[in-house]
Design a protein around this nucleic acid. Sequence first.
DNA 1: AACGCTAGTGACACCCGGTGCCACAGGCAA
DNA 2: TTGCCTGTGGCACCGGGTGTCACTAGCGTT
Lengths: 199, 199
Amino acid sequence: MTTAQADLRADTRARLEQVALDLFTAEGFERVTADEIAEAAGISRRTFFRYFPTKADAVWGDFAGHVARLEARLAATSPAQPVLASICAAYLEVNDYPPAQLPLLQQRMRLILGEPALQAHSQLRYADVDRAVAAHVARRTGVAPAALVPRLVATSTRAAATTAFEVWLNGGGPLADGLRRAFDELAAGFPALLAAPGH
Amino acid sequence: MTTAQADLRADTRARLEQVALDLFTAEGFERVTADEIAEAAGISRRTFFRYFPTKADAVWGDFAGHVARLEARLAATSPAQPVLASICAAYLEVNDYPPAQLPLLQQRMRLILGEPALQAHSQLRYADVDRAVAAHVARRTGVAPAALVPRLVATSTRAAATTAFEVWLNGGGPLADGLRRAFDELAAGFPALLAAPGH
DNA sequence: AACGCTAGTGACACCCGGTGCCACAGGCAA
DNA sequence: TTGCCTGTGGCACCGGGTGTCACTAGCGTT
């Protein structure tokens, strides 16, 4: 009801997601065929593609909801708060997962950031995030969403978030810390670059 | 000789590129089949895939050379220059095309930034750029290339460059100006965000 | 001239992701 | 019972990409 093809049995979908995720993690995304996922989940290939428009989409969970929450957070920020800080806060809140869900998030992100095919696919998903952030910046600054600054802020803040995820996956401390550090660097024009000049 | 499968007749390759580019521009990337490109160029489908590993790769010209030039520029920058400025300078020099080549560049970029499938594919190509820039930052700051700051600088400067290209394609003035503006915003922590608070 | 080597090519079969179509089963309301 | 609506499977098909084999043209040897 919510979107186009998203009203089939929700439990089937969840099971399908987990089966796919586990297979991808174990064998690698490209080496798992849609047939194998379907068979492992006890359904037909055709049905698999009714739940997910693409093999890659099985990795993303409810990403549309994620973007919607981000948009809501952005819309709810106080006009008194600096724009960049409001974006940082929204990213932090939206990515504040309960500890029990961290392993799943880690599994998803390891695939998305590690598998080339998914890395490519992610660009399509992230475009929605960028649109939301750019619209927020445009609203706050009174500039057109297609102008340089809104676009630039959207893509580079997303770059910050992605980088924080990568560092987190590589054992670089809590995700929230990474996000804050990345946004701080961004907001200050990369002060860390002045630390050790030359080599 | 240079790379793996890149030693077939260079003129055939160039003709193939232009044929593919024109077809993609006219009909849209997804609506043009490899068969059609091959037929229009007077070769077989199989041969097309010997020149380009992927339909998408027909759009990129000599991107490996582009990355190599960027790397060389980065390596040649003075240690006295601020890191961000050195990256900006490298991007500017590498993208300083003679006016005669601008229409071709525009055609390529319009496809890469406009067609979803190519947008996704671009992520794989840009990964090389990011690696080069991150290595440069790591060299200059004495930090590991996989650390947060090098990664973040690499992805957000590339975001700046991409945004400048988008603005350029939409008629927002010369490419070099857009690049400089984008890097200036980045280096100063987005001062334009403070221009008009509230809405 | 005949030989052999190599590079580029085409044809074919095949795999896989994705889609359109039809047929079927189950639940549920009239 | 009849009808509808939802989820499902099967099948054929398209298109991107690959492995393999056979053919040709060029070229240097002898």
